[in-house]
Amino acid sequence: MTIYALLFYLLAAVILVSTAIAVTRRNLVHAAIFLVASFFASALLFYLLGAPLLAMLEIIVYVGAIMVLFLFVIMMLKEKPASNRPAARGRKLWTATLGLIYLLAVILLVFATGPRGQTPLTPAVASPAAFGRYLFQGHWLGIEIASLLLLIALIGVLHLGHTAARRTAAGIEEEK
């Protein structure tokens, strides 16, 4: 096992464990922090695979922006103490079944495909310039579509936000 492989498995373990912890926490802030840890480890994984740009973007976008906003919302909502009532048994069963199926499938897949995929991914240190050229020459339609997507998402968010603002205002007036 090379040192890279060692690091790979180490990071993979960190990702798995922290994500698992994240989805099982009742305290939302703790869950968010473990998710941050998971993203962090993913970023390191990217770095390990020779994509420093992606690694940084992962941290900036996911850790630095998205999760902060999550945290922000959680803090704003003043998270109520999570009820200790266990979820409905049916739902638990359903979730567990799906999870098990997925797990089985993945295990089967792993053993069926063998240790290496058939198409070797050649590790290459992608410089930001090379990456940018690849992205904007080969996929610029996709990027344009994505920008439209963001516009639409913005409209949606404005609509939802507007709704919320109106309701609070109405609520305050009612209280008066």
């Binding site: 996929h139 339609l141 996709g142 579509i145 994505a146 439209l148 997507l149 949606g156």
Partner: peptide, 14 residues
């Protein structure tokens, strides 16, 4: 290109 397809699909969904 399946990636373009995916993004377009998302756009329509959103």
């Amino acid at each position: 290109n399946l990636l373009t397809l995916y993004v377009a699909l998302e756009l329509s969904s959103y």
